[in-house]
Amino acid sequence: MKLTVNGEEQEVTSQTLSELLGELEYEGDWLATALNGELVSASVRPACNLKDGDRVEILTPRQGG
């Protein structure tokens, strides 16, 4: 299925958000995720099913003012 991940279109086979992180090789321990504009905490990623057209954001700590 086709997803938009961090603003870029991706063709993936993952069924859940946690599978998606593995498939796209997001290896960091400190990630925050959102699906279609809603927060998805790490603990619920394995149960978070994906569907065609979903928008996923994967964020991480950065410098800030």
Binding site: N6, G7, L24, E25, Y26, E27, G28, D29, W30, L31, A32, E57, I58, L59, T60, P61, R62, Q63, G64, G65
Partner: peptide, 15 residues
């Protein structure tokens, strides 16, 4: 203060 920004696939800059 810190921020949140998009992580790159395979990257661990946030860590």
């Amino acid at each position: 203060t810190v921020s949140l920004r998009r992580e790159m696939a395979g990257g661990k800059s946030g860590d």
